[in-house]
Each structure stands twice: as structure tokens, then as C-alpha cells.
């Protein structure tokens, strides 16, 4: 594949991009268009499948194969494609409503199976396309059009959910941090099987500033806990330590010893550690780990499916239609 040298321009379709000015989706699109040449694949081998939502317009803007499907079902549709066409690189684009409300079931099962999908979950903590209702990641008490007195639902974390669903690769990044976003895409692309990337994405129209703490240069370094494999987990002011019960805690660096700080290991098979990491940030976003939470090896679904078929054929021989039809108890009428 090394002969293929494509550029960002090759992956930019002729469709006019129609997100609101300032929408975080633009920067994610741009990062993706720049990253795609790195895959080393010809354009026809790449497919983007999305659900419904502002974010799900994404495939139209990429010069690859693409399908803008229906609300919440992209992981299911993409699983069918990826399993039957293991030669393709299949990406799913989804939103917090699309992936976690209506499509929650498909998301967890795609991750559980380790379907060969790279799932990009654009989390703006709001329903953008339907003009601003609270989503499963909106903080409790949020005032929106459908919750004028404050939402009552407890939000959940896509990272915790994915880990609970046995996801083999789980990461978080931010729309505005192009470098980190690109590194995360790269790590996901290299992973075999499902990869879930939660991307914090600003919706300037219906949920503006939702991620300001982790974007503003004055607060960012205090809030972000950058996860790097083999490195201690710290922000500018805090470090992550493990208490006597094995739970993780964030403490001011002044109160702890450097040696107490947890060294990040994304490859631990047991998801307990990654889950504990995912619990550090609650919806207040006081301390937010970003990076790869978990990256472990597990046979991808399509590999298992095709190995099984090959094994059956090796054992029973390739199916012969005439033999199938004439199987069982037959009799001859003269």
C-alpha cells in the first residue's frame, strides 16, 4: 500500500459543509481529512457510516465511501459491512444522543463483539440537530427547551459505559486539540477490533462553553490529566493516586509524593483500572483524563467469523448445492 500517497485534499469532498459557524465538528473534520492519508489505504477502501445528528453529516464531507444512515443504528449497519468486508477500514460517526440514547444497545453490543469499527462519538452534551434538548451526557439540572425547570436524569459516562461493555480500546480527546485528536485517531486506527473515541465537541449554538475549562489556556493545564502509557498521571497541579482500597483519587501535587502517583498502563487486561480512571471526571469536569484509557488485544469479530467459516469448510468441505438439496431421506419416483 506504500505507493499510495494521498493528501488532505484527496479526502475532501465537493460538498459544502453546513455546520453552524464555530461548531466543533469543523475541527474534527479537518483533523480527520489530514489524518486519513496516514492510513496508507486507497480512498475506496475507507467507509464512514453515521447515524443522525449534526455530527452525522460528517461522511458527506469526505471523499471516501460513506453512508448517512438512521438514528442510532450506525454501529449495527457498520458491523454488517465490516464483518462481510474485512478488507475495508470502517469508521462510525455518532453523537451523544445517537450513540447513547436511541443507539445505546447497538453501541454496547458492537463493543462487546469487538466489531472492526472505529467509533467516533461527538459528545456535545446536547441534542444539536433537534435544536437543543438535554442528552444522556447533559449534567443533571440542565436547563434546555425540554427541561425548562432543569433536567432530572443522571448522566452517564460514555467511557465507563464502553468499558462496562468490554470495549478493547477506549479513549477521550477534545475537538480543539488537533495534535491530541490526531494522536488518538492514530492509536485507534492501529488497534485491531473496536475502538471508541469520545470527542468533547463544542456546540456554540445550544451548549456553548460546555468544555471551556478544558480548552481555556488559563484553566486547561489544571484540569486535564493526560494519559500516556508508562507515564505518571498528572495535571499541572494534581496527581492521581491509588488509595488503600485500590480506588483512584486526584490530589494536589503539594499533598502527595511523586512516587505515589499512578503510572498509566493502558494494556491491563482487567478493565477495573480503566474504569476507575473513567470515574475521575464527573459531569462537573473538575479533573478530566484524556488519552487512551484502555488498549488491549482481543480477537476482532470479523476475524472470528471468518476463521469459523474457514474451519467448517476445512472440516466439511465447501458446500455443494446439489448435495444440500438432495440430502436427508430421499426417494425416487419413476
Amino acid at each position: 500500500m506504500s505507493e499510495v500517497t494521498l493528501t488532505k485534499k484527496d479526502f475532501t469532498s465537493d460538498q459544502e459543509v453546513r455546520w453552524c459557524p464555530g461548531c466543533g465538528d469543523y475541527s474534527i473534520l479537518s483533523a480527520m481529512q489530514s489524518f486519513l492519508p496516514e492510513l496508507g489505504l486507497p480512498r475506496e477502501k475507507i467507509v464512514f457510516i453515521s447515524g443522525i445528528g449534526c455530527s452525522s453529516r460528517f461522511p458527506y464531507y469526505l471523499e471516501t465511501y460513506g453512508m448517512h444512515s438512521i438514528h442510532g443504528r450506525a454501529p449495527a449497519i457498520a458491523t454488517g459491512l465490516a464483518v462481510s468486508r474485512p478488507d475495508l477500514s470502517v469508521w462510525v460517526i455518532t453523537g451523544d444522543g445517537d450513540a447513547l440514547s436511541i443507539g445505546g444497545n447497538h453501541l454496547i453490543h458492537a463493543l462487546r463483539r469487538n466489531a472492526d469499527l472505529k467509533i467516533l462519538l461527538f459528545n456535545n452534551r446536547i441534542y444539536g440537530l433537534t435544536k437543543g434538548q438535554y442528552s444522556p451526557t447533559s449534567e443533571q439540572g440542565k436547563i434546555t427547551k425540554s427541561s425548562p425547570y432543569g433536567s432530572l436524569d443522571t448522566p452517564f459516562s460514555p467511557i465507563s459505559l464502553a468499558l462496562g461493555a468490554e470495549a478493547s480500546f477506549v479513549a477521550r480527546t477534545v475537538d480543539s486539540d488537533r495534535k491530541h485528536l490526531t494522536e488518538t485517531l492514530r492509536a485507534a486506527a492501529e488497534h485491531k477490533g473496536s475502538a471508541l473515541i469520545e470527542i468533547y465537541q463544542n456546540c456554540p449554538i445550544f451548549n456553548d462553553g460546555a468544555f471551556d475549562q478544558i480548552k481555556d489556556s488559563d484553566t486547561r493545564d489544571e484540569v486535564l490529566l493526560r494519559l500516556e502509557h508508562g507515564q505518571p498521571i498528572t495535571s499541572a497541579s494534581h496527581g492521581v493516586i491509588s488509595d488503600e482500597r485500590g480506588l483512584l483519587e486526584v490530589k494536589p501535587l503539594s499533598e502527595i509524593d511523586q512516587s505515589q502517583i499512578v503510572i498509566h498502563d493502558a494494556h491491563i487486561q482487567d478493565p477495573t483500572y480503566a474504569f476507575a480512571l473513567s470515574r475521575i471526571s464527573d459531569s462537573s469536569l473538575e479533573h478530566v483524563p484524556v488519552g487512551v484509557f484502555r488498549d488491549v488485544e482481543r480477537a476482532p469479530f470479523s476475524q472470528l467469523v471468518h476463521e469459523q467459516i474457514d474451519a467448517v469448510i476445512a472440516k466439511e468441505g465447501k458446500g455443494q448445492l446439489a448435495a444440500l438439496l438432495n440430502g436427508g431421506d430421499t426417494w425416487q419416483v419413476e
Binding site: I49, S69, I77, G80, S84, N105, I108, I313
Partner: peptide, 24 residues
């Protein structure tokens, strides 16, 4: 009948069943 190269996918629900079929 996997020896015919058939892929059977027991989906998480009916929607995923038809969705995956459409994807294929």
C-alpha cells in the same frame, strides 16, 4: 450451513438484525 460461506449474525435486536443485513 457455514460451509456455504454463509454469515449468520444473531443480533442484539431486530433493528440490528436488519441494519447489519443492510450493511452487508
Amino acid at each position: 450451513l457455514k460451509k456455504f460461506g454463509v454469515i449468520t449474525f444473531q443480533a442484539e435486536d431486530e433493528i440490528a438484525g436488519v441494519g447489519a443485513a443492510l450493511g452487508a
